[in-house]
Write a protein that binds this DNA or RNA. Structure first.
Length: 533
RNA sequence: AGCGGGGUGGGGUAGUCAGGAAAUCCCGACGGGCUCAUAACCCGUAGAUCCAUGGUUCGAAUCCAUGCCCCGCUACCA
């Protein structure tokens, strides 16, 4: 639907004045609404709909939001919504597709009614397979935590808790709302090609899932936008996962396997255990605050600690003349490695499960608690030959991925141009840009036809300079040379000089272009050279 | 326009709620070291008007006010 903005009279569409004042328009506010497709006028029709009595949940919501955990952006936003006005919520739509509204085949349920109920459905599905009871989660004492984009905060902080409350279900404990995902700093958009498909663009190209998990979890705090670019992806993987974490795990395990073949004897030093303990504490706090980026930074700090420890203790020297001291260093490093594997398991589970095996450990890491990182590795436990966990992504691979993306963007652009109505886009100019044009009033001193040309006249124009300007103008079809002499005109004086029919022209006369030229002139006579603004 | 979130070295990013000496970390640049490890790792150097202006304070990236810019939402797009 298109129409006119009631605030600034610019063309507006739908519910937003997108070309003018940018204001949001309520239904009915837009003037002269017409259908964009058939161009008929929009009209009001009467229909039966169903509403959820949201207004009666006001007190409940205000109280509930005070206790809701998660990010403050979601909570603050929802609180203001409820504070301002809580209207009853229309929960039916006249659409072909959707979940039919009971007893009314012509209506479907609004998607934000049935979509979150899907959370319950898939919990039930999961529980059925896992031998659990979904009611323990949705009707019992549980911790329900929603991870959402900030664009749907009000659905999850207002509508959904009200529905659950009304139905007597358990309420979400926390809502963690993150910024938007961007691709190459552009708004994520399937139609514009700014999209990375997990199957087609990632898994099918041989990228391992843990790498993307790491990128998403470690990029930034929840409240900021998360940008994805292949270049940054490569940098993060190569520097952080390969260079720091992977390298520490591998150099430690490889060195141990080569020189000892098993977990060496001796106790882990207190200093190292303290470092691990303090890391676990800090990570636990960060995780409880849902601050994944912070948690990962702390874990990576332990990895850096491990690398520095290995470097400064120089076990490759010790092995030659002090095997016992070397064993101590190795044991310390192995313990750090164990802690790293446990701490990183939630973020990069596949790789950490592999590493768990490299440490000679049995069982499922995901079932272990963080504190297992303080349990010293059992001496004499044989260690298998370790394998490299993460490999570098080379430039060529990244170039390939960028080509794929750029191609998709170009195709989307071409498609857009084809389908979009051909409205010429007139760029906006700044005052400074306008000021670059030297437009002045001048008087025609002389005018004559140019030999061999039907359209051109050669004019001499006085714009207050010592010598009149020579200008060639394409106005011969509408103007007789002699009648122009003495008339005032408007001249763009700093037009780039050009030659037409061998005659130099140093300016352009301004005219309205209506089936020929209609010359502009001042309202009243002014001095030659007067600038136009 | 209203409401919410954000603006920190060349790029990215932490710190802001609970003000405190020289502002974190990663990349990039420069110099050095090491050789167990995937040209990796370690040490060091340079680089920041912490969006702007004003205020509070012994002290402000941090608190307050105003302004500018970016993002999200505004109940019938999901």
């Amino acid at each position: 639907m298109e129409g006119i903005c009631p605030h600034c009279e610019s063309p507006a569409r739908g519910d937003e004045c997108d070309q003018g004042c940018n204001r949001h328009l309520e239904p009915g506010e837009i003037l002269e609404p017409t259908c964009k497709i058939c161009e008929n006028k929009a009209e009001y029709r009467e229909q039966e709909h169903f509403f959820f009595r949201l207004s009666s949940f006001r007190d409940f919501l205000l109280e509930y939001l005070e206790t809701l955990e998660g990010t403050s952006n979601a909570r603050n936003y929802a609180r203001e919504w409820v504070n301002q006005e809580l209207r009853d919520w229309c929960i039916t739509r006249n659409l072909e597709w959707g979940v039919r509204f009971p007893g009314h085949d012509e209506l479907v349920v609004y998607v934000w009614v049935d979509a979150p109920i899907g959370y319950i459905s898939f919990t039930e599905e999961y529980c059925n397979n896992a031998g659990l009871d979904w009611k323990d989660i949705w009707q019992g004492d549980s911790s329900i935590i929603h991870f959402i984009g900030q664009d749907i905060a009000y659905h999850h902080c207002i509508f959904w808790p009200a529905m659950l409350k009304g139905a007597g279900y358990s309420l979400p404990k926390a809502v963690v709302a993150s910024g938007m995902v961007k691709i190459d700093d552009k708004t994520f958009s399937k139609s514009r090609g700014y999209v990375v498909w997990v199957n087609d663009d990632y898994l099918d190209h041989g990228f391992q899932p843990d790498l993307l998990r790491y990128y998403l979890a470690s990029y930034t705090s929840h409240t900021k936008d998360l940008n994805f670019s292949w270049k940054v992806f490569q940098e993060k993987v190569n520097n952080e996962l390969v260079g720091s974490l992977g390298n520490f795990l591998y150099r430690t395990l490889h060195f141990t396997h080569k020189n000892f073949g098993e977990v060496p004897e001796g106790a882990v030093s207190d200093k190292v255990l303290d470092e691990i303990r303090s890391t676990i504490q800090k990570v636990t706090v960060a995780m409880e605050e849902y601050e994944f980026k912070k948690a990962i930074d702390i874990i990576m700090g332990l990895s850096a600690y491990g690398n520095t420890y290995f470097q400064s203790k120089e076990p490759w020297h010790l092995i030659k003349n002090d095997r016992v001291a070397c064993a101590g260093v190795v044991k310390d490093c192995l313990q750090v490695a164990k802690a790293l594997v446990l701490l990183f398991e939630p973020v990069i589970p596949t790789k950490m499960n592999e590493a768990w095996g490299h440490l000679g450990q049995k069982g499922d890491v995901s079932q272990m608690k963080y504190d297992e990182g303080l349990v010293e590795l059992e001496s004499k436990r044989p260690l298998p030959k370790p394998a490299i966990l993460f490999t570098k992504i080379d430039d060529k691979k990244i170039d390939e991925m960028e080509v794929i993306m750029n191609k998709r963007i170009a195709e989307a652009m071409a498609k857009e141009e084809k389908s979009a109505p051909q409205v010429p886009v007139i760029p906006v100019v700044t005052f400074e840009e306008f000021n670059t044009m030297d437009i002045r009033v001048g008087t025609v001193v002389s005018a004559e036809a140019i030999k061999g040309s039907d359209k051109l006249l050669k004019l001499q124009i006085d714009i207050g300079e010592d010598i009149p300007r020579q200008v060639v103008a394409g106005i011969a079809l509408t103007h007789v040379a002699d009648e122009l002499v003495g008339r005032q005109i408007i001249l763009l004086a700093n037009m780039k000089p050009a030659k037409m029919f061998g005659v130099e022209s140093r300016g352009m006369i301004l005219a309205a272009d209506e089936n020929g030229a209609v010359l502009l002139q001042p309202e009243s006579k002014v001095e030659n050279g007067t600038p136009i603004r």
